[in-house]
Amino acid sequence: MLFFTLLRHRRLIVFLTLGIVALAVLTAQVRTPERRRIGWAGAAVELAVAPAAAVLSRLSGSVAGAWSLLTEIGTLRTENARLRAEVGRLREENARLRPAAQENARLRALLGFKEQQPYQTAAGRVIGRDPSDWFSTVLVDRGTFGGVRRNDPVVTSDGLVGHVIEAGPTWSRVLLLPDPRSAVGVLVVRSREAGVVEGLGQPLLRVKYLARDADVQPGDEVVTSGLGQIYPPSLVVGSVVQVARAAGDMFEEATVRPSADLTHLEEVLVIIRGGESVAR
């Protein structure tokens, strides 16, 4: 009897069971990315997606170049044939060299920054991004084979980017500062006031838990405090753009603009901190 009842409501039972599983998975790790475990099946998915993403990511540069060349040729059609060929050739050359020059400048800056660092680092290229509007992670083409491990901090020459939340053999996923799951202990350089920078799912960050009478002003530089075990001290996080002091609040809050351009990340440095006792 029970069997037939179950059979009759099979579709609802499948839906509810899967719904409960999804809710259980969600609530188990939603506020703590450190507890995010994708398991062997998730690693297999990443293993399949990462190489395809790497190929598509590299192809996108060529496609964009070819597309811009096509549109430029369309506008030049009315011009003199010799001039058109000359302009086409120069533009093609320019289009080919400009990304190389920009990449060169970025890599030089990154190399200079890397040489200044007392830590061992591994350079990686961003091969995938989270397309959703309210979370911020990127996929980097450097993993455990390159020495990268969970909770390793990630930087660019401009400043802190985030930290690794998953590491596979040839890839790692980086939780960026604007992600709502991100929280970093920080200091205001000028006044040494301490707080916690949290992501809001938007380009700007929020510093919470500043003392009520904290001396913080727009333009102040904010760096990591070194508390919390993941981030080493004195990595540049950003600069204060606004300070909020509401009457009756126990703490002061500030809005910070990240120093690193997190919307156009292409190359990053992962700080490898093998000897430290952080849960990984």
Binding site: R10, R11, V14, F15, L18, G19, V21, A22, L23, A24, V25, L26, T27, A28, Q29, V30, R36, I38, G42, V45, E46, V49, G128, D130, P131, S132, F135, T137, V138, L139, I165, E166, R173, L175, R181
Partner: peptide, 30 residues
């Protein structure tokens, strides 16, 4: 293929999407 297959495909694809995009696991699944 109907609701059972639709639900199973949705849950599996959503979970894959959560894994590959880095959002909290379970959100896309749901």
């Amino acid at each position: 293929r109907g609701p059972e297959v639709g639900a199973a495909a949705g849950a599996a694809a959503g979970w894959m999407q959560d894994v590959a995009t880095g959002v909290p696991l379970g959100l896309g699944m749901l």
